[in-house]
Design a protein around this nucleic acid. Structure first.
Length: 296
DNA sequence: TGACAGGTTGGGG
DNA sequence: CCCCAACCTGTC
């Protein structure tokens, strides 16, 4: 049994529609959030963690975000960190205005359908480890892997039952069997090899956000288990590189249906020229649209 | 019950 | 270069 602080409104204006709230936290950007069966009177509630902070995040009926933290955590600091994690300080209105909504009906429509979609600001480490786990897996399975890695190899987070996503060092030091036991399957080798290479190279993954997109991507592609798609996910969700345009099977299908493009390289080239520097945000709009259509 | 997963790798053509 | 089987293992 753990004690959580009373849910309080974030001290920074941040609004979501119910759908965008769920899509942002549970649509495949991050894998550490679980819907709470007991919503504590809110419209929606998630429990989980980011970085080294455990949290419960609530959405009120009116679209405001509330949060609570384990009792012994520094709620004020955690709240500020949560706003940062939700990319709260970015001006999404300006960003969205940069997309070609005037010439592109799909973008125009998606912007209307997803008025408050955001890109989570995870750490490079969280994104790197999560997305190496993600290949050829469903979201529920990725969540399971990431959860097990955290439980087995991560630093416990103060005040809660959660542990953080492990460090690169912890991955490197762990026996392969332990990584395998986190249900990674063939991805266990990828993860261990990548961790080893990062340490051997003395590469500071925390520098990824400061690196030019092309350089950062080139380095990620040199790691095991990281191809074009995973590299772009790490850069978009873990390094705030909005020009990254991850091309997965959903996007492939959507881009084929909507723009008549099928080759991934062609899709990336088109994305860069057509969507511009915030292509990654367009990708999330299209991704949400594609998955939404599918589930109906 | 068996294909098939939000992908990458490495070998063969 | 492109093609594609193989990779673990839980889901559908």
């Amino acid at each position: 049994m753990e004690n959580w602080s009373k849910a309080s409104k974030l001290n920074y204006p941040l609004r979501f529609t119910l759908e965008d709230f769920v899509e942002t936290l549970d649509g495949g950007q991050a894998f550490t959030w679980h819907k709470m069966p007991d919503k504590h009177g809110f419209a929606e509630a998630f429990e989980g963690f980011f970085s080294d902070i455990a949290a419960r995040i609530f959405l009120s009926e009116s679209g405001e975000v509330f949060a609570s933290f384990p009792c012994c955590a520094d709620s004020k600091n955690s709240g500020a960190r949560l706003v940062e994690y939700l990319d709260g300080y970015r001006d999404y209105e300006s960003l969205r205005a940069e997309l070609p909504f005037r010439s592109d009906k799909i973008i125009e429509q998606s912007l209307k359908a997803r008025p408050t979609l955001r890109i989570l600001k995870q750490t490079p480490r969280e994104a790197l480890i999560s997305f190496i786990c993600s290949s050829s897996k469903r979201i529920v399975q990725i969540k399971q892997c990431v959860g097990l890695l955290a439980q087995n190899l991560g630093e416990p987070i103060s005040g809660g039952v959660f542990s953080a996503i492990p460090t690169i060092e912890a991955i490197d030091e762990a026996p392969l069997e332990v990584i395998k036991s986190c249900k990674l399957g063939f991805r266990a080798d990828y993860l261990k090899k990548s961790a080893r290479k990062i340490l051997t190279d003395k590469f500071d993954i925390d520098s990824l956000p400061q690196m030019p997109y092309e350089d950062a991507k080139k380095y990620l592609l040199s790691l095991s288990g990281i191809g074009e798609k995973v590299a772009d996910c790490i850069l978009l969700f873990g390094a705030a590189k909005f020009e990254a345009f991850p091309v997965d099977t959903w996007i492939k299908k959507a881009m084929c249906d909507m723009y008549n493009l099928s080759d991934p390289n062609e899709i990336r080239r088109f994305a860069r020229s057509h969507f511009g520097k915030y292509g990654g945000y367009a990708q999330q709009l299209i991704f949400a649209k594609a998955r939404n259509n599918k589930s109906k």
